[in-house]
Design a protein around this nucleic acid. Structure first.
Lengths: 128, 128
DNA sequence: ATACATGCAAAGAATTTGCAGCTTG
DNA sequence: CAAGCTGCAAATTCTTTGCATGTAT
């Protein structure tokens, strides 16, 4: 089914070795310096494959490029409204959140995500 | 500062009279039938102004166009993974959610949003 | 062998923006 | 009249896709 190509390995390793949350373009830039022949289309295609096979996690973004991270455990994120970067939030995962819904109105609830907005320490220290 | 133009009025009224969640393009189509001269740029610009002045609410979307609704009270949404439409969730707003964060890690938390994914009654009844 | 992957460039989707002319206060 | 707004089209941003060629199994 899915093949082990050099490119796929390099992209997965890039995320494994860079803790945090990277955009497709950042990943492309990082890899491009070592492997100048890699194409952006390949990066996007492989990020999709790796996400679908649950080897990495995609953090969908509403006002800019999506982020990707090595950690696939379900958890929540906070986005800095100034630098637009995304970080993990240290907070227990709410497995029971569906119990808080008062009336499901005939919907089948499958999953949820929580995105916090705020200001990261780095931007805070650079003044308002 | 902000002026009352016919276009702005018509766009606000469109949301007021159409309960639910509409995309910029849906709003444009609805208005265009009555006011063929309106341009899409004007719709987008006015939706931004109305959102900034808190007259309407924007629901940011990760895999398609954003939605807009007349109701500006903070609440949560569910997106149908089949038809991609967005609906309100009947669930209390978690004003205390920041208390659940175990370690703010130096971040200033400002706001949060929760997006559920699921299947809407209409899609459920159309079979799997 | 052949199904899957790659590089490249072009296309796509959603939204923003530059500009000249028009309105509102 | 001046600041703000409009219509139009072009530009921007992020991501996907078509195609001919290459490669893993």
């Amino acid at each position: 089914m899915n093949r082990n190509t050099i490119q796929r390995d390099v992209i997965a390793s890039c995320l494994k070795n860079n803790p945090g949350h990277l955009t497709a373009d950042q990943i492309y830039q990082l890899i491009h310096s070592q492997h100048p022949a890699i194409s952006k289309g390949t990066v996007y295609r492989n990020l999709n494959v790796l996400t679908q096979t649950n080897q990495i996690q995609r953090i969908e973004n509403t006002d800019g490029p999506d982020f990707f991270e090595w950690n696939t455990h379900p958890h929540y994120h906070i986005k800095c409204i100034q630098c637009k970067r995304v970080f993990d939030v240290k907070m227990g995962y709410m497995n029971n959140i569906f119990d808080l819904v008062q009336d499901n109105a005939g919907f089948q609830f499958i999953s949820h995500q929580i995105m916090f907005e705020g200001i990261c320490p780095e931007c805070l220290s650079k003044g308002d």
